[in-house]
Each structure stands twice: as C-alpha cells, then as structure tokens.
Design a protein around this nucleic acid. Sequence first.
DNA 1: ACAAAAGTGTTATCCATACACCCATGT
DNA 2: ACATGGGTGTATGGATAACACTTTTGT
Lengths: 232, 232
Amino acid sequence: MKNNNNKQNKPVKFAVLATDVLLFSFYDNELLVKLIKINRPPYFKNIWGFPGGLVKPKETAEGAVARIVFEKAGLAKKSLIHLEQLYTFSDIDRDPRGRVVSVAYFGCLSWPDLQKIEKTNNSELKWSSIKKIDKLAYDHNQMLKVGLERLKSKVAYSTIISKLIAREFTLTDLETTMEIILERKIDKRNFRKKILKLNVIQETGDKKIGFKSRPAKLYRFISHKVINIELI
Amino acid sequence: MKNNNNKQNKPVKFAVLATDVLLFSFYDNELLVKLIKINRPPYFKNIWGFPGGLVKPKETAEGAVARIVFEKAGLAKKSLIHLEQLYTFSDIDRDPRGRVVSVAYFGCLSWPDLQKIEKTNNSELKWSSIKKIDKLAYDHNQMLKVGLERLKSKVAYSTIISKLIAREFTLTDLETTMEIILERKIDKRNFRKKILKLNVIQETGDKKIGFKSRPAKLYRFISHKVINIELI
DNA sequence: ACAAAAGTGTTATCCATACACCCATGT
DNA sequence: ACATGGGTGTATGGATAACACTTTTGT
C-alpha cells in the first residue's frame, strides 16, 4: 500500500475541488498566519499547513472556506471579517494522493477581537510568525508566497490594514504594523501627514495611557469597508 | 428529458472543473473580446459566451486554457502571447446543467499579429466590441465585468498594453488605445512626457507615412515582459 | 491653400522626501 | 532627574496638471 494508486489515469471527468485559507493576524510585532497539523501518511506526517478541505456539491468555494475556518481553524463564525479569493492552484501533482485543485483564499483577523480560545496554540493548531515558517504540506509554501505578495500590495494600496489591527490604535501602532508587513521603514512625520490627509481615520478622543511615556491619541478607521487608496 | 437531472443531490465528492477564457484584442478603436456560439438546449440556444471547456485530469487549468484557445477559439498556438488567471467562479447554479466550477483566465492578443483566419467572424465565432455585448451564456457577463476591471487596472499600472497593440506604434496609437480601454481622455503632452521618461519604449527610427497628415515617429516596447509600472 | 494629425514648452501647484528637537508621562 | 515614546514643521526637488500654437504631410 505504498504506491500512489489514487493517482488514476482513467479519463473520468474528475475532480476534487478543495479550498485552503491563509488566515493572517498581527500580534506582538509579528505577522502571523494560522497553521493546522496535517497527518496524512504516507505522504504527510505531522507537518504544518493551511486549513483546508473539500468543497461540497452544494457549497461555493467561499462558503466552504467559511465552514473550514469555523470547523477546522477553530474560529468563531463572526470572527472572519475579511476574506478574498487569492488564486487557484491546479498543478497536477500538488496533492500526492490524487488530483485536487484548490481555490485558495486569504483572510485577515484583528488579534484583539479574537476570543482567548481562538488565540491559543497547541499541537494541532497554531498561529505562526511568518518569519518562522519552514516546509509546509502540499504546495502551501507557494501559496504563502502568493498570499504574502498580495497582502503586501493590498497593505500599501488599500485600507486592508484596518482588518489586521485593533479597532482603536495609535498612529505609531498603524505605522509599525505596516512597516513590519511591508518590511521597510516609513518616515514617521510623512506617514502621519499623509494618512491624516486621506480622510480614512479619525481621532476617537481617547488616549492610550499607562505606557511610561507620553499618552498617544487613539484613532479608528472611519469606514469598515476596505477601499483602494494609496496609503503610503 | 426536460428536467435538470444532472443536478444531483448525491453527496459525491463531485466535481466538474472547467475553464473559460476572455481573449481581448483591439482594432479600429474598439476593445474586442472573442465570443463563441453556445448551443446547449434546453438551457442555451444560440447564445454567445466565452470559449471554455473542461479541464482534463492530466491538465493544469492553464494548460486547458491553452488547448481551448487553440481548439475552440480558433487561434494558432503561437498567438497567445499573454495569459493570466482572472478569478474562479464557483456559484452553485452558474451552470444550469450541473455543478461546474470555472477557473477564468484572460489573455491579450495583438490584432496585427493575428492571421487572417484568426480575425474572421462567422456564426460560430466572432470578435465583438465590448460595447456591443448583450446577454451572454452562464455567468459570463459577470466574468466580463471582472475581466474588464482587471484589464483596466493593468493598463493603468503595467505595460500590458504592449500585448494589445502592434509591435510598432505611434504615440497617438498608444494614447488612444489606452483612452478607449480606460474610458477617459489623457492629455497628449503630459502623456508623451511621462511615457518617454519611463524608459519602456524606444523609437524604431521609422515613421508611419501615407496618412494625409504629418508622419508620426514609430516606437516599440523595449522589453516583451509585462512589468508593473504606473503608465499614466 | 487647406485639412489633418504630429509635435512641442512653460507655469503653477501639489506631493514626496529628508530631516531633529521638544513634550508628556511613568518610574 | 531620567527614560521612553509622542508629537510636530520646513525647505527642497520632482511630479502633475493645465493649456495652444507650429510643423509636416496629403489632397
């Protein structure tokens, strides 16, 4: 039973349609992504990968992702605040068990909005810093590459960052989150001038206190919608 | 045999994976897209749609598109000079015959590079101005909307226009092609200053003559690669 | 000579960039 | 008093935007 006899040559119309989801969050100055332990001997033994699963006959790909995020990624249904299609991966050998085409999605979650259980790491499910990711199952390293590229481009050219940070944030929070995701330094004074002129954030009136330095004004995004706009 | 008994409720893993392709070209001041006559009674009788077909078990989605472009869209294999994945459409009822998920691609073709047969319109295959498109089969109107959006954004922010125009072109050709695709006027002098400074096109040394007005210098794109750069 | 499209320059405004010091709080 | 991060302004150069006339050809 060690051969790949699932990889059939029969001219059936096939196929197995799956979906995988890259869930991003941000905590403690690190961009995180949700990983699940994959155990499918003989091909994958105790290797990490993205949550995924088959799309059911009566589900859209997006519907399947919503279900998988809940059932497999261990998130409450209401937690998924931003989800978009990333890319469809159809390499013939991407799954050694047989032909599986995967529609990958990516989602963004605000860490402070997560419940305690959703933040917990264990042997089956964890939030991993993208800096610490090694070999993943299937073609998930390739997915991660595509996903990170897309996330970076969206962080620079849209308000998607609003889905990754706390509802209320200081300008420094916003700046450093963007710096870490984009992997480059942003000039503090120019960033503040620009973001304030764009009319996408507003002061809450409150300040962040108790941090052994001058209290910082808190801001929030005016709209919950992700709009395309050059942020930096 | 008039009911939709292909739309099964069986909990099979399913599925049928298909691909559809939006082939764009540009001729006579119009953005064109390739349509094929679809005849699948009782659902579709003599209605236009995009060329498409099933992905075979041993094909990637991109491979299937390359085949369909040749077999169904009537293009020589070498003609397809630019192809990229657009979006995967997985609405449950997008195909009334049953569950079919389609990975849509879009391609760009330079009209003068096409052979005569490839440009011909008949009752089964035609190039249609996107201004004259009415109801299409399946969810192809939605695909067209997504495709046009993507094409517009790429025309503004990449050199993809190089795949839609003749290899040698005047600055006015380039400008009007972009104007028509983007559906807005561009200032002639500012456009010329910008495009020339970007170092993406060069003079060929020749001029376009015989047009009852002053001959215009011809240019070509320096690189065949589509790069991301703000063109206008 | 006329029509038609090619080609060209200047100015004003806005935006991007570079850069360093004082302020308000906690300890 | 000191350490920490918050907050602010200006000057320069480059890009953008608005705008109209002359040139070269075909007829």
